[in-house]
Amino acid sequence: MSSEFKKNHVVAIDDFTVDEIRTILDLAEEMTPIVEGKKINKDFEGKILATLFFEPSTRTRLSFEAAMKRMGGRCIGFARPGTSSAKKGESLADTIRVAAGYADMIVLRHPQEGAAQLASKFSDVPVINAGDGAGHHPTQTLLDLFTIRKEKGSISDNHIGIAGDLKYGRTVHSLTKALSMFETEMTFISPPSLRMPKEIIDMLKRKGVKFQEVKNIEETLSNLDILYMTRIQRERFPSDEDYKKVARSYHLEREMLENSKDDLKVMHPLPRVDEIKADVDETPKARYFEQAANGVPTRMALLKLLQEV
């Protein structure tokens, strides 16, 4: 089963091959009955997962802990740096070496870029990156891919619109890189000041991926199979006025969905603020809560594959 998976650590989505991604998503699918409580699993009985969160991310942490506990394992760790020895000036390298002595695997969330890469060098147990500053967040991308496949039957052959802050949003960068490994078409929807960075655009051109860049959701919505929404942050704009003017055109409301395909699925990494109006939630097109729930089977699959390496 895990013949395609040879990783000791999970640092970045770019480290995976298409086959490895498929292996993870296949296994995540098998995990679904366990998550739904229809099957009991004890694969991790007696095992300990350390969740070291140097910055808070409740959803990611809970989802890793749920994944571990669904397989009979236990968790130790901290949810913010105030409760850790890092606050007392200990290096990350030392914290990791100590935690590796207590636990069978480590999940790390850290505000500095490259933290997970560093941790992987000092740990003799598997390290999973749960977000490092503006850097990587590979398990978010895996659960996004899992969601697309689950909703659409495949990742390839979809036209995927990605909307919001495409310049600074690491989630959309990782997702775009991952999608470029499959046969998809992409449309990037953002204000001109928040377009996809040049490196990513160049990478897509090099790979011959079909894509276009547009300025508003409505002009492209009717073509899309998936609409991936993200938040545009107030800090990116000089004034409240500027922000409000721009942000409004990147809001999705129910009425707009009338011009979309019947089987359009709307995704969002959450938390959302007002970029998706609550009236969208009740439509069958809204899949963001399912998407969040998909974090559990995806992370279960990853834990299991790492344990077997």
Partner: peptide, 13 residues
């Protein structure tokens, strides 16, 4: 050059 890079903290690398 990235001041927020982990190698710019006092890590033993």
């Amino acid at each position: 050059k990235n001041s927020n890079c982990i190698t710019n903290q006092s890590e033993p690398v």
